[in-house]
Design a binder for these strands. Sequence first.
DNA 1: TCACTATGCTCG
DNA 2: GTACGAGCATAGTGAA
Length: 666
Amino acid sequence: MDDLPVDLDLEAWRVQDPDVGRLRELLVELEFRTLLERFAGDGDAPQAPDGGEADYRALTDPGEVEDVVARIREAGMVAVDTETTSLNPVRADLVGISLSWAPGQGVYLPLGHVSPAPSLLQESEVGPPPNLPGLDDPSMLPLVALLEDATLPKVGQNLKYDLLVFRRAGVDLAGIDFDTMVASYVLDPGRRQHSLDALALDLLGHATISYEDVAGKGRKQVPFAQVPLARAVEYACEDADLTLRLRERFLPELSEQGLEDLFRSLEMPLVPVLADMEWAGIRIDPTFFREMSARLGRELELLQEEIWKEAQGEFNINSHPQLREILFEKLGLPVLKRTKTGPSTDASVLEELAAEGHTIPRHLLEYRQLEKLRSTYVDALPKLVNPGTGRIHASFNQTVAATGRLSSSDPNLQNIPIRTALGREVRKGFVAEEGSVFLAADYSQIELRILAHFSGDEAFVSAFREGLDVHRQTAAVIFEVPVEKVTGEQRARAKTINFATLYGQGDFSLGRQLGISRDEARSFIDAYFERFQGVRRFLDEQVEKARERGYVETLGGRRRYIPELDSRNWNVRQFGERIAQNTPIQGTAADLIKEAMLEIHRGLPGEGFQARLLLQVHDELVFEVPEDEVEAVQEFVVGRMESAMELAVPLRVDVGIGRRWYDCKG
DNA sequence: TCACTATGCTCG
DNA sequence: GTACGAGCATAGTGAA
């Protein structure tokens, strides 16, 4: 086993035709070896991640707090990690804090441990373990002062979480300096996982003690407060220790790759902004959702009856296999599209079947829409209201999207319906607090403007500079008609082709989407690039660069590696080309709105405003604004958004204002 | 009972 | 096979 390289770069195997079996073997071997390391020897000294002896200990005597704080101040930096009662930071109570200020060093401060769970007791521990007094106790003052000291840099893994946990506990964590999760994301946003466990294994060759190891798993899992102190110490200190070590590894890489500015000036400052958004949450009207649910329920029942009648039998409409059998075997409808497992029943298929005069597909489409609204939004959202605040506190994730975008989850507030009238109703359930309104500000045509900037294409650039309708202009150019003669149909097609360009869409699917032949679609695309040669050149350049260097980059200097371009599979390579073309555009839009968020977050309190940023939806920011400052905030927000970056074309922001999100229409 | 996959649908 | 980036709901399957 000695010939196993310690510093396995597992990322090297990522994506391109991975030899999964071999990879798994290596992982298992590596894990086995680190487990052996950990349990080798006399067993009472924990193994540090470098194989040496770790000095991890519990701090249970308040008298020692001052000494630890002094040592941290001397070190000039500290890695912090919190253990809590919940993964959801806005309802998590502190159970313990671990601190590490040098590799192999760590202390764990138990604040809220109780009698260990009998199922976990192996040692002779009985009764509640010794705990420190709460953070509000005078003996803890030096520690709180340290945590709140902005001049003492804090290192952490997912600091947004710890920031919120501390805020709930009455501590204002300051000096947020280095988040290893964010660093990993900046260095390689396409990486599968940025979890501490994955980073430690891949980059430090160290298999961590898993949470399940200390707290059990599944139904047998117990709260961390019931984990025996000795095991809690090892687990918690290891995390802080590893975090500190990962910083050592990431810091030089960031500067070597020229990514330090993106990290220091954009992504790290964004951490507290996102924390504030999550902390603020958004108010909903549960009564509205209850009533809408009842309404949808009644409609769904009627539709179900109707569908069953047409199918001449009862079945589970939500079941793909059952629906397939009814449509394509029992009723003998034509198969227009296939999935891996059989005929497709998706919306495009049902639309086409409905157009051919069948009645069932129409009812199925309506059933699907209503079922989607009820299950995903109307019934789900009220369940997520935090009882303490009466609001929904979604997560805004900073390290998920490979392009640099944010994502939202639990619930996802970035995909609340808007495109259909019925779906849009859901937005009536989002209401501003008393005395305030929502202000929604969105960038107009942001990705096309960025494409215009990058390509320098004269037709595009001048259209935006002159404030013209860019899709109409596009139509005039590719259909060779005067602008004032462009028909609605032509404009719609031009709009589709503009978007197709952003995604690298091919003739096959464009034709399908426009309801024209593949050849016709091909000639549209050819005409488009013939007229917009700057666009063609830009897109080709991105693919070329990606092939040469292995990555593409955004205006903010964000990189995304594209290993797909080296695949032996043509489909995968094509996918890689589309990624290379789209990522600089989508990613630059992400850079841009993040800049705006920082500016606005910094500026709002400074300007004396109470307004708070609640949501980001990729090209849109939603604020909650006291009524008496709406006009001033609007001017401020629009100004900062439109000047977030200087491009070759102007940026334009549209604003909607209303008591309900629904009412925020331009 | 839980974890996982397949499918489909919501948004920018 | 065929449009970029996400998250989530329901069914169905297979393992613990």
